[in-house]
Design a protein around this nucleic acid. Structure first.
Length: 426
DNA sequence: GGGGACCCTCGCGG
DNA sequence: ACCGCGAGGGTCC
């Protein structure tokens, strides 16, 4: 076991409309972030564990580093030396923190002004204008392309909870061990080479990956067999790797820029990568803002709000897929994929933060109950008038309820008042 | 280009 | 209580 070293909290001024990590880290972009009971988000990233909190004004962050970075991957890791010795053998704290600051700014893609972009998309599209206000601060992350590729190969015909578990298993079984913190082991994301062993496919099947086991193994083989920078060479030059210089990527035709189309096409050659997964990797891993992944959710949005689903585009064929992307690109422009993610998030069932936000403001359990009764009445009327939406609304409501229950537990733990009746046997 | 099959897990309705 | 069924950020053949 190797202990890890914790840096001090640092902060970056960011408003919640420019970045909301509670939304952004849960909306199915990355499947690795976890939120602790204390409300702290964490994820292993670039050889460290990054932790985050956010308040009205700032994003607060700190990192946990392996105690001896130079011995990473060594078979026989030496025991951690005593602190007096240890402090001299590491990089200086200042340097670590500098690196973490740059990583945070880079990973969260903080350069574009999201408020301005929302403004543009709203003036171009009444539907966006209607839906977006409850989902501000949804920002496309600049994830590692390989990690995005793996995550989205796992995503096919799957749900976010299971995808997250699968990705975690990959890190635990194949990722580099970073060290222990609070007597828990941490692992980074595995490189392609780590998944090329002959036994990998069978092992992943045993771990519950299903048919995606083969996709991951085959894709790892293919990527590992190419040049090391193959994937990163498909990046948008306007969105380069950390520390590299940005270059223009040209004007954008309806079908997207040349570099985007090239990247998309190359990715399609990989196992388990179809048009949707390729677009996810282009958008979230390679910095192509015009990539619009069309999945079942987006397809439903396109039918419900953008007049698809009839005539030539009655089913989601490849031609329809492209038409939906083109429609959104012509509507929202070069960052169409960013706008698409806002609407996608607004449609995600897992999102019930409207209620939770109210609870936090009120802080009173009785008020929450009143809120719930009111919500219940609302739901009933909706159900009566819109039978097509009946199931969806009901389920959404039930999920909101379950979140409220979690909040109740928190209130109780804090020594708040008891709920009284309605106690269930555990 | 359409339509199954595909791994697995969970929630729902009978 | 048990079971069949469909859906979950699709892709392959």
């Amino acid at each position: 076991m190797r202990h890890m070293r914790l840096t001090d909290w640092q902060k970056l001024p960011v408003s919640l409309t420019e970045l909301c990590i509670d939304t952004t880290l849960r909306c199915g972009q990355s499947f690795r972030w976890r939120k602790s009971e204390e409300g702290e988000w964490s994820c292993s990233l670039n050889g460290r564990v990054l932790s985050l909190r956010q308040d009205q004004e700032c994003l607060h962050y700190r990192a946990i580093f392996p105690a001896a970075a130079e011995s990473l991957g060594a078979a026989n890791t030496p025991l951690t030396p005593p602190p007096s010795v240890a402090s001299t053998s590491f990089e200086p704290v200042l340097q670590d923190d500098e690196g973490t600051t740059a990583l945070v700014k880079h990973y969260f893609n903080l350069a574009p002004n999201l408020t301005d972009l929302y403004e543009q998309w709203s003036s171009a599209d009444a539907n966006f204008k209607k839906k977006a206000p409850k989902f501000t601060g949804v920002r496309i992350l600049r994830q590692d392309a390989w990690e995005a590729l793996v995550g989205f190969i796992c995503s096919s015909n799957n749900n976010i909870a299971r995808i997250s578990q699968m990705v975690e298993k990959l890190c635990i079984h194949y990722g580099p061990y970073l060290g222990d913190f609070d007597s828990k082991p941490y692992y980074d994301f595995p490189a392609p080479q780590a998944l090329t062993g002959k036994e990998v496919e069978q092992h992943l099947r045993e771990l519950g990956f299903g048919y995606r086991a083969k996709y991951l193994y085959q894709t790892a083989l293919m990527v590992a067999g190419k040049e090391d920078d193959w994937l990163d060479n498909l990046r948008n030059p306007e969105s380069p790797l950390l520390g590299q210089l940005a270059k223009s990527a040209g004007d954008m035709p309806e079908g997207g820029r040349e570099g985007y189309r090239k990247a998309h096409e190359e990715l399609l050659a990989l196992q388990g990568v179809g048009p949707k997964v390729a677009d996810c990797v282009c958008l979230m891993g390679l910095g192509w803002g015009e990539a619009v992944p069309v999945d079942t959710h987006v397809w439903q949005i396109a039918q419900r709000d953008y007049k698809f689903g009839k005539g030539k585009h009655s089913s989601l064929t490849k031609a329809t897929y492209d038409a939906v992307g083109n429609k959104f690109r012509s509507l929202w422009g070069k960052e169409a994929g960013w706008a698409h993610s806002v609407l996608f998030t607004a449609d995600l069932r897992a999102f019930s933060e409207r209620l939770v936000a109210k609870i936090e403001v009120k802080e009173e359990f009785q008020d929450v109950k009143a809120e719930l009764e009111g919500a219940a009445a609302e739901v009933e009327t909706v159900v009566k008038s819109e039978s097509a939406e009946q199931k969806r609304v009901k389920r959404e409501f039930q999920e909101e309820r379950s979140i409220v229950k979690i909040e109740e537990v928190v209130v109780k733990k804090r020594g708040g008042r008891q709920p009284g009746k309605r106690r269930r046997k555990a």
